[in-house]
Simulated scan of single mutants.
Amino acid sequence: MYYGLALLLRPVPGGSINEDLADALTGKVAGVVPTSLLILLAAVVIVWIPFKRSPVGRAAYATGSSESAAFLSGMPILRAKFASYTLAGLLAAIAASF
């Protein structure tokens, strides 16, 4: 599945990215609002706000402040680390598409 997606984005290995995709990501909606701003707002609304308000998100925040204090408070540290790294990978993938 990933190989097919990679071929869709780059039909020739080492070649340029699909021009339609590049234009869609770097263009403007209605000639005013940049598409990248809309994607950023969508990522914040869909990913960041629910993560921040969830117990795992609060545990990630507590773990970043002091891992030992978060552990002693009963926070799910391993789950918070896993979710944080997964979220970082997702956001890095979105940034890499630009």
Rank of each mutant, 00 (worst) to 15 (best):
M1F: 07
M1V: 15
Y2M: 07
Y3T: 15
G4W: 11
A6L: 08
L7H: 08
L8C: 02
L9F: 10
V12E: 14
V12C: 05
V12K: 09
P13R: 15
G14P: 00
G15W: 08
S16R: 11
I17K: 05
E19Q: 09
E19W: 15
E19H: 10
E19L: 03
A22W: 14
L25M: 09
T26K: 04
T26E: 05
G27M: 02
G27N: 13
K28V: 11
V29F: 01
V29E: 11
A30G: 05
A30R: 06
A30Y: 10
V32A: 05
V33P: 09
V33R: 02
P34W: 11
L37D: 14
L37Y: 13
L38V: 01
I39R: 11
L41H: 06
L41M: 09
A43Q: 11
V44G: 06
I46F: 11
V47A: 07
W48F: 13
I49D: 09
I49H: 01
P50S: 00
K52N: 15
R53I: 05
S54F: 04
P55N: 02
V56G: 02
G57A: 00
R58T: 06
R58C: 05
A59L: 02
A59T: 13
A60G: 03
A62V: 06
T63M: 08
S65L: 11
A69N: 01
A69M: 06
F71E: 10
L72E: 12
G74R: 00
P76M: 00
P76Q: 12
I77Q: 07
I77N: 02
R79Q: 06
A80P: 03
K81L: 12
K81G: 07
K81M: 02
F82E: 12
Y85K: 09
T86H: 00
L87T: 14
A88T: 06
L90F: 00
L91E: 09
A93Q: 04
A93S: 01
A93N: 12
A93G: 10
I94L: 04
A95L: 08
A96P: 01
A96K: 04
F98P: 12
